[in-house]
Simulated assay, not measured.
Amino acid sequence: MTRTVSANITLSLDGFAAGPDNDMSWLLETALHERCAAGFAGYYRGVDTVLLGRTNYEGFHGWWPAVADDPAADPRSRDVSRWFDAVEKVVFSRTLTDATWSNARVARDPEATVEELREAPGRTISVFSSISVIRTLLAADLLDELRITRIPTVLGAGVPFWDGALPRSTWTTEEIQTIPTGAVVSLLHRA
Rank of each mutant, 00 (worst) to 15 (best):
M1G: 09
T4L: 00
L11R: 00
L11I: 02
D21K: 11
S25K: 12
W26N: 03
A38Y: 05
G39L: 00
G42P: 06
Y43T: 10
Y44Q: 08
G46M: 04
V50M: 02
L52R: 11
G53Q: 05
R54C: 04
Y57Q: 12
G59E: 09
W63Y: 15
P65D: 11
V67K: 02
V67M: 05
P71W: 06
A73L: 05
R76D: 01
R78V: 06
R78D: 07
V80K: 14
R82K: 06
R82S: 14
A86S: 12
F92N: 11
S93C: 10
T97E: 00
W101S: 05
N103A: 04
V106F: 04
D109Q: 09
V114P: 03
L117Y: 02
E119T: 03
P121K: 08
G122W: 01
R123K: 04
T124F: 00
F128Q: 13
S130H: 10
I131V: 15
I131E: 11
S132G: 14
L138G: 11
A140Y: 12
L142Q: 08
E145T: 03
L146W: 06
R150W: 02
V154A: 05
V154C: 07
G158E: 07
P160D: 11
F161E: 10
D163V: 10
D163P: 04
G164W: 03
L166K: 10
S169H: 00
S169R: 13
W171F: 12
E175F: 00
I179D: 15
P180Q: 14
S186T: 14
